[in-house]
């Protein structure tokens, strides 16, 4: 037999033999495997896509807040950064209106400013004494009317007092030989004053507190 294997592309098989069956089965199997793998890939990709979409949705549901939080945080950070430098201790500013009001009351009831502003060097003690009565009486009346005063310590001045541990250091000031630990024992030098009630009158909107005594013109 002439075993000449020439490739002739125009030649068509005229029989359906076992080889052909093999080939066809292999092609079909391979195709099936290919389809399966592709399907599996698509499904798994679809699932992943869904998950990521869900994640995205969760992320999308919260998103406004976290964004603001972030901004807030930034502000806080700024503050913290700012704070240590210019905020040592904020000192309370005493209200000048109340102080002016008290001056005005003392002037009205006790002629306080007149007395203080007068040059007393040329007057005799007796004359000053007469005027001092006006001031003393008036001040006493005003203070009693607008403040309730109590002594901090009820003991007699000059008597021995003992301060237990945890005593109020703003009410009692220690002086002299301060050593050791509470309880402290010492002499009461000044009994102290404490305002327990303030009843200052209210002021109208149009009131100018700086005029503590108006000038007076008689017609």
């Amino acid at each position: 037999m002439n075993k000449n294997y020439a490739i002739d592309l125009s030649l068509m098989p005229s029989t359906f033999d076992l080889w052909h069956v093999y080939l066809i089965v292999t092609v079909i199997v391979l195709a099936l495997i290919l389809i399966f793998v592709l399907l599996a890939m698509i499904i798994s990709m679809a699932r992943r896509a869904k998950k990521s979409a869900e994640d995205k949705a969760i992320l999308a549901a919260v998103p406004v807040e976290p964004e603001v939080k972030v901004v807030e945080k930034i502000v806080e950070v700024e503050k913290i950064v700012q704070a240590p430098a210019p905020e040592p201790v904020v000192l309370k500013e005493a209200s000048s209106d109340a102080a002016l009001q008290l001056l005005s009351i003392l002037q009205k009831d006790a002629r306080f400013i007149d007395f203080i502003k007068e040059d007393i060097s040329s007057y005799s003690d007796a004359d000053i004494g007469v005027a001092a009565r006006v001031v003393h009486e008036g001040c006493n009346k005003a203070i009693n009317e607008y403040f309730t005063l109590k002594t901090v310590r009820s003991e007699q001045e000059g008597s021995k007092v003992t301060l237990a541990k945890g005593f109020n250091a703003s009410e009692v000031r220690l002086t002299g030989n301060i050593v050791g630990k509470a309880p402290f024992s010492g002499l009461l030098i000044h009994k102290g004053w404490k305002v327990t009630d303030v009843r200052l009158p209210k002021l109208t909107q149009g009131h100018n507190a700086k005029i503590v005594a108006a000038a007076e013109v008689e017609l």
């Binding site: 209200s95 209106d97 109340a98 303030v198």
Partner: peptide, 17 residues
């Protein structure tokens, strides 16, 4: 500003009453 401040310290006592 001062007016607001005046509600400090001393007046807090009278605020009670």
């Amino acid at each position: 500003g001062k007016k607001e401040n005046s509600a400090d310290d001393l007046s807090s006592l009278s605020a009670e009453s």
